[in-house]
Write a protein that binds this DNA or RNA. Structure first.
Lengths: 166, 166
DNA sequence: GTGCGGTAGTTGAAGATTTAACGAAAGCCT
DNA sequence: AGGCTTTCGTTAAATCTTCAACTACCGCAC
């Protein structure tokens, strides 16, 4: 509002505590994702994005999902999902299937092998998430994390908020 | 402990609420980082990693830091920082300088131009962080995020604070 | 001093992601 | 039916990141 000459007066900077939280989040996220990804790769020859995709497929009807839904559910670009699924297909984790109801459509299906790999990977991955994140936080703090990032998601995806109001 | 045949009994899965928080965090982070990065690129021809590096340099003595410190402070690999700094050097944002006290060392220095670009980018970037994250959360919730990811960082970096367990 | 392990930083190739453009099929409107 | 627009998924190229060497230098032991 006032002017003193530095040019910063109208900028709503973060206060010291907010700054600290923001950086902790940035750095912590970098380290955490890095580590979880590395663990998955070393122990199960899977990347995080691949794992995420397998989880979504495993939860779907018939272990299959249209490419677009898959992309939306993990919030990755369609192109990215195309590439990831191609790699996974090559590894025998998923298969592609034409969509009967829509000539343009393609469905990704989790294979037997994919399901087996997921069943192996899930326990160690979840243990990592616990050990490196969930168990480090108070229950209340972790719930706060959930609230905050649900709000972020709502702000960045149209139609997401409506779904969650319940 | 007991066995019923599904094989899941010894696994400490996340409960419904934890699961929800974890996914919100994953998806929210993906969307948020994507968006902040996109905004920086469109408005200032900068990527998030580049911006992060400029912030660290701007806060350092003489606007300069050893490559290794820079890498540590943003939690990126040294190789990554080498590549990023090379690109930034090409863009005239930083310069490289030999380190006097250590023949192996290299210092990255923020140029005048780099400082000017940062001064332009910072307000809009911070505004985005506020609008898409900080202002969406209760103060207390955001502080919780800070606590959680400080704990994560402590757990993943030796010497950061950890090692008090055991 | 010499040797030796460790650290600093770079390099090039491989891998992953983004971007923009594209062909094919749907949906819609008349 | 015909034309127009949108959506689906893929592709190729550019960009960014990781990975595994590799050089150069430091520090310490002897």
């Amino acid at each position: 509002m006032t002017r003193t000459g530095t040019g910063d007066e109208d900028v709503a900077w973060l206060d010291r505590e907010q700054q600290r939280s923001w950086r902790a989040y940035l750095v912590g996220t970098t380290l955490l994702m890095d580590r979880l990804d590395r663990d998955l790769r070393e122990q199960h020859q899977l990347s995080m994005p691949e794992y995420e995709i397998m989880v979504r497929l495993s939860e779907a009807e018939g272990h299959r999902l249209r490419m677009a839904s898959l992309a939306d559910s993990v919030s990755h670009s369609r192109s990215r999902v195309t590439h990831t699924v191609t790699r996974m297909e090559r590894a025998g984790l998923v298969a592609r299937d034409a969509c009967l109801s829509d000539g343009r459509g393609v469905e990704a299906v989790l294979t037997e092998h994919g399901l087996a790999v997921l069943a192996e990977a899930a326990p160690t991955h979840v243990a990592g998430v616990r050990r490196l994140l969930v168990d480090l936080a108070d229950d209340e703090d972790f719930e706060a994390v959930g609230r905050v990032f649900n709000a972020v998601t709502d702000a960045l995806i149209e139609g997401h908020a409506a779904m969650d109001i319940r």
